[in-house]
């Protein structure tokens, strides 16, 4: 594989984490414009852990996940009773709060004779674990793929158990859910923690691939994109958001004949798809049919 293909596939993989994160909340009935915040937390957390504190890579990634999940749950707790636009704006508010906070967040320590760590708006340089460990881009791509598979496996477990059903019930009718004895608050906070953890996971991987992160990378746009991926790809299965990323970034590469008009073509295509399938390509009906077919 040439290095260009590797970098495109790595980006698809990393963006999938963010898209799955937004998708989990969509399933639970909440629109989030702010999952990029947990991606950023994962990137900074894991980066600080390996570059400044010199933790092993796996532990650093784990720290990023815990940070994303923990802050996700913490933010969800007061925001839990908000729905629809209110929740969307609250998530946006938190994400922008965090981003502007990172703009003044300085935490530079001397490591091996160099100052390392986040330097406000100048960003955070030298997250060099992959370089120092001698991991080639292809190896790192495989690592990203493996991590993504573990997230898919986790979602599959939830679907096999009761987790996914709980998310969908609360997402569709929280009042009915409560009258079935379900604790809507716990489901919503759990969903937010899960979504935050997944985004943090992706963020940690991203930081160690890019070796450099800065607050400006975590603006509203990637968050809105991530949200759109799930809606385009479909809310039925976890492959929906991944399909959304593939369609977008894949289209970006394959529609190079349309260079300059790519988004005009792609945007129109997406709008047409949504007219025919309002809940995305792989929607719940597709999931039901698929499950019925499997059972046959």
């Amino acid at each position: 594989m040439d290095s260009y293909t590797i970098s495109v596939l790595s980006n698809i993989g990393l963006f999938s984490f963010l898209a799955i994160s937004a998708w989990i909340l969509l399933i639970a009935g909440e629109i989030s414009f702010g999952q990029q915040a947990y991606f950023a937390l994962g990137a900074y957390g894991a980066g600080i852990a390996t570059a400044v504190w010199q933790w092993p890579f796996a532990l650093g990634l784990g720290f990023g996940i815990v940070l994303g999940a923990g802050i996700g749950a913490l933010v969800a707790w007061p925001a839990m009773r908000l729905t629809g636009v209110h929740f969307a704006i609250a998530t946006l508010a938190f994400a922008e709060f965090l981003r502007s906070g990172l703009n003044i967040f300085r935490y530079r320590r001397e490591v091996g004779g160099y100052l390392t760590g986040p330097d406000g708006a100048n960003g955070f340089r030298d997250i060099r674990w992959a370089y120092e460990a001698g991991v080639e881009p292809l190896g790192y791509l495989i690592l990203i793929g493996g991590c993504l598979l573990s997230v898919i496996a986790l979602v599959a477990c939830l679907a096999r158990g009761r987790g996914m059903a709980l998310l969908r019930i609360v997402g569709e009718d929280p009042i009915l859910a409560a009258m079935q004895g379900i604790s809507v608050a716990r489901v919503r906070i759990g969903a937010a923690a899960l979504a935050g953890g997944v985004a943090g996971f992706g963020g940690g991987l991203y930081a160690h691939m890019a070796t450099y992160v800065e607050p400006a990378q975590f603006g509203v746009m990637p968050g809105v994109h991530a949200l759109a991926y799930g809606l385009i790809g479909g809310l039925g299965t976890v492959f929906g958001p991944i399909l959304g990323v593939l369609v977008d970034i894949g289209a970006l590469e394959s529609l190079r004949v349309f260079s300059g008009y790519r988004m005009i073509v792609f945007g129109g295509l997406v709008a047409l798809v949504l007219i025919v399938r309002p809940r995305g390509l792989l929607d719940e009906a597709a999931l039901r049919r698929g499950l019925a077919w499997l059972r046959r």
């Binding site: 969509l26 809606l231 385009i232 988004m263 945007g267 949504l274």
Partner: peptide, 16 residues
């Protein structure tokens, strides 16, 4: 949700 996603797609069109 579909309308929101669709208006996002149109947004991307307009920006380009």
């Amino acid at each position: 949700l579909a309308s929101m996603a669709s208006s996002f797609a149109i947004w991307m069109q307009l920006e380009e």
